[in-house]
Amino acid sequence: MDITALIPLILSGDSRAYAEVVRTYEHMVYTVCHRVLRSTEDAEEATQDAFVKAYQHLASYNGQAKFSTWLYSIAYRTAVSHGRNRRMESSSLDDMHHHPKAEHVDELRRNEAAHHLGKALACLSPEDSAILSFFHLDELSVEEIVTVTGLGASNVKVKLHRARKKLLEVLNKELGAEAHDLLLEHA
């Protein structure tokens, strides 16, 4: 479905059209927020904020970038901002951040691959984790990642290279056999 065709409808006040946008991008936006924040509650809150911001400023979307890239950009910046605010809050919330295993219980039930990947991504910085996700999962180009994150192209390439190398190291060392079995099992 062409999402950009819904924009005039949304701007004229059709909330059902925006519900369609939310349904289409809900998981993608939530994934970005979860990669950055690593907490279900915070990611859900950031996802809500991102969609509300996108709705408020929909009139400023000029169609130069893809709609998904524009939305990712809002989601990523909202999540980073949430993360910054959270760091300034009480240490009880920080404790949750330092125990990624506890955050992946739901994922373990839902999907073994997601569990392994989440566990390995928890070893990377939130920014690197999000960049890898953009590249490998959402198949964003380096240029699109530059638009989303606001980082320079060379910086994105370096981060992508290093993060990928580190993730492979973690997967090979700590989850090597399990991850291999998983990939072969579902190949």
Binding site: S15, Y18, A19, V22, R23, E26, H27, M28, Y30, T31, H34, R35, T40, A43, E44, T47, Q48, F51, V52, Y55, D106, E107, R110, N111, A113, A114, H116, L117, G118, L132, S133, H136, L137, L171, A179, L182, L183, H186
Partner: peptide, 22 residues
């Protein structure tokens, strides 16, 4: 692995909560 893992899935009716705020 990324493709297999897919996107993270929020716990509850997040879309409804978003639309209520919208």
């Amino acid at each position: 692995l990324f493709r297999k893992a897919g996107h993270c899935v929020p716990r509850t009716n997040l879309a409804d909560r978003i639309m209520a705020r919208v």
